[in-house]
Design a protein around this nucleic acid. Structure first.
Lengths: 344, 344
DNA sequence: CTGAAAGCGCTTACAG
DNA sequence: CTGAAAGCGCTTACAG
C-alpha cells in the first residue's frame, strides 16, 4: 500500500491559453475551433495547432452554459436484473457513444418512486433526451407529455400512444417459428407458451396461431398450454403433452428455458430430437441454446439492434422531429439442430 | 401518429428568479440554498420557499464552473456482454445513485483503442472519478497513474499495484465449497475446473487444493481436469471421470455451466444426486442453478456488493484518500439440493 | 477576417 | 447578516 494525496489539481488548459499561444483573441479561437467560417484559413490552422499542442479540451460546462444542448442523454432502466435490458443498453450505448453524446445511466429497480426521482435527477442534469428501457414487453405507464425533452421507450412500450415505443415483433416471431416447422414437414405442432401474464407470451401465441391457420393446421391438443418461464415447467408440460398427444412432431416453447425443460423430457421419454420431434424456443439466450442437446433453434429478438434504433430515433427527436406510436422491430430465427439443421 | 414540433423551450427558472421572488440578492439566495451559515434563519426560509414554489433546479453547468467537482463518475465496462458486469453495474449505480453522483456509462467492447477514446471522453466531461469493470478476473492493463482523477478497478484487477482493485475471493470460494463437501462426509472429491486460461479457474483450484490438504484429502484422480466453460465440456468431463474413478462421491465444478453438464451425465449414468454424489458449481447464475435437477449448490461471488464497495471506495478516493493494491472481497456458498439440502 | 464586450447561471471573497 | 462585484470558461452578436 502506498499512500498519498492527490497532487495539486493543476489548472486545466483553457481557451484563453490556446488563444494566447496562437496570438489571437478568445473569440477568434472559439470560432476557429468550432469551424465557424468567418476565420482566415491560416489563422484557423494556427489555433488548431495551438489547441493540439496544449491538448486543449473545451470545458463542457462552459459550453453547455452557452448552448441549447448538453450532449448527454439519460438511460432509465427499470430493472438491470432482467437479461433483456443488457443487449438494448449495448445497442444504445453504441449508437450514442459513436457520436458526441454520453449516456447517464439510472436503474429504477422496478420502483416507481425511484424512477420518478431518477427522472428528476436526469432532467436536473439537463439531459437532451431520455430512453426508457423496460424488462418486459407489457405496456408501462408513460412518463407523461410534459417533459421538457423527448423520450423514447424501448422493449416495454408506453401506455400512451402519443409516446414513441420500440418493441420486438413477438407476433411475427411466433409466425416465423411456425413457418419453419411447417416447411420442415411438421404437422402436429404443440405450443408450451410460458407465462400467460406476459404480453410476450400472448403475442407469440397469436403469431403461432395465425401462421398455423394460414397453413391449414391446428395446435396439437387444440390449444396452447400456459405455465411458467422455467425449465421445471417445461419438463412438466412436455411430460403431460407426450402423455396426451404422443403423436406430436414439434414442440414450440414460449422461451428458451421452457424449451430446455421440454428437450430434457423428450430425451428421457425416448423421443429423438430432431428425428422424431422438432423443438424451438424464443429469445435465443446463448447460455441456454448453444450447449443444449442438441443445440436449440430459437427466435432472436434482435435486442441490440432495437437499442440502436431507439437511440437513433431519440437523436432525431432531439433534433425536433417527433411522432408517436408503437414501432415493432423485426426478429429473426436462428436455426440449430433441434429443427433438423445437422451441423457438426 | 401525431406529429408536432417541440414547443418553445421555455426559459428555465434561474437563481435570479428565486432571489427576486424572495426579495434578496442572488448572492444571498445562493448562500441560503447552499446552507452557508451567514444567512438569517428567516431569510433562508424565504429563499427556500421561493425556490420550492418555482421548482428551482440549479443549473449544474453553472455550478460545475464554480466548483471543483462535477458530481459525475465514469463507468467503463470492457464488455457488457459478459454476465459479470451487470450485477457490478447495479451495485455501483446503487451506491452512486443514492448520493448526488450520476454515472456516465461507456462500453469498450473489449477494444483497447475504443477504451482509450472513452477514457478521453469521460475526462473531457470532467468526471470526478472512474470505475473500470472487467469481464474476467485476470489482471488487465492499468489506465496509468497520470490521470487527473482517481480510478478503481472492479472484477478485473489492474496489473499495476499502485491502483486499487476489487476482486471476488475465488481462492476462498474454492475452500468454502470443499469445506462444505467435507462437512457432508464427502471424501472422494473430483474437480472439473473449467478453462485453465482464466485466473478465476486457477484461483478456485488453489482454494480447493488448500482446503483438501487441510482436511487431509487429495483430489480424486490426483488432480483437477481443465477444459471449457460449457455444459458440453461438463458432460464430457464427468463421463470420463465416472469411467476412471467410479467411486467419486462429490464433483466440484469450475462454474455453473460445467456443473449443469456434469449433473446431466451423472443422472444418465445412474448416479443419484445428492444420495450418491454431491455436486456444486461457481457463480450462482440463477438461470442455471435454480431449475436444474436437482437445484444446484453454488458459490456466489457477491458481485453486486462488489460493485457497491468499489463505488464507495471511489467516493473516498475522490475525497482525497488514496491507496493501492488488490482487495479481495468475500464470497458465499448458496446451498441447494445437489449437496444434500433437501428442501421442496 | 478579427476582437472587445456582454452574457450564460452560478459561487465566493470582500465590503458594508 | 446582506449585497455589489468579480470570475468560472466559453459563445455570440456587434463593431471595426
Amino acid at each position: 500500500m502506498n499512500r498519498g494525496t492527490r497532487g495539486e489539481q493543476k489548472r486545466s488548459i483553457t481557451l484563453t491559453d490556446v488563444a494566447r499561444l496562437a496570438g489571437v483573441s478568445v473569440a477568434t479561437a472559439s470560432k476557429a475551433l468550432n469551424g465557424r467560417r468567418q476565420v482566415r484559413a491560416e489563422t484557423r490552422e494556427r489555433v488548431l495547432a495551438a489547441a493540439e499542442s496544449l491538448s486543449f479540451t473545451p470545458n463542457p460546462f462552459a459550453q453547455a452554459l452557452n448552448m441549447p444542448k448538453s450532449g448527454t442523454v439519460g438511460m432509465l432502466t427499470s430493472d438491470l436484473d432482467g437479461r433483456f435490458a443488457l443487449p438494448i443498453l449495448m445497442g444504445a450505448e453504441d449508437a450514442f457513444g459513436s457520436g458526441a453524446t454520453s449516456v447517464l445511466l439510472c436503474d429504477a429497480r422496478g420502483d416507481a418512486e425511484r424512477e420518478r426521482r431518477h427522472v428528476a435527477t436526469l432532467l436536473a442534469r439537463r439531459v437532451d433526451g431520455l430512453i426508457v428501457v423496460g424488462s418486459r414487453t407489457d405496456p408501462r405507464p408513460s412518463l407523461g407529455q410534459q417533459l421538457p425533452v423527448p423520450v423514447v421507450y424501448a422493449y416495454a412500450p408506453s401506455e400512451d400512444d402519443a409516446d414513441v415505443s420500440f418493441v420486438p415483433d413477438n407476433v411475427r416471431g411466433g409466425a416465423l417459428a411456425v413457418e419453419h416447422l411447417v416447411a420442415g414437414g411438421r404437422r402436429r405442432i404443440a405450443l408450451l407458451a410460458g407465462d400467460a401474464d406476459y404480453a410476450a407470451a400472448r403475442d407469440r401465441v397469436a403469431g403461432v396461431r395465425a401462421a398455423l391457420h394460414d397453413a391449414g393446421l391446428d395446435l396439437v391438443g387444440g390449444a396452447e398450454t400456459y405455465g411458467e418461464w422455467s425449465e421445471a415447467w417445461g419438463r412438466q408440460a412436455a411430460d403431460a403433452l407426450l402423455t396426451e398427444n404422443p403423436d406430436v412432431d414439434a414442440v414450440l416453447c414460449g422461451n428458451d428455458q421452457v424449451a430446455r425443460g421440454a428437450l430434457e423430457t423428450l430425451r428421457e421419454r425416448g423421443r429423438r430430437v430432431p428425428e422424431d420431434v422438432w423443438v424451438a424456443g424464443f429469445d435465443n439466450w446463448e447460455v441456454l441454446t448453444a450447449s443444449s442437446r442438441p443445440p436449440l433453434t430459437s427466435v432472436d429478438m434482435n435486442l441490440e439492434e432495437l437499442g440502436r434504433t431507439a437511440a437513433r430515433h431519440l437523436f432525431h427527436a432531439i433534433d425536433g422531429e417527433r411522432h408517436g406510436g408503437i414501432v415493432t422491430l423485426p426478429v429473426r430465427l436462428v436455426i440449430r439442430e433441434t429443427t433438423g439443421d445437422v451441423r457438426v
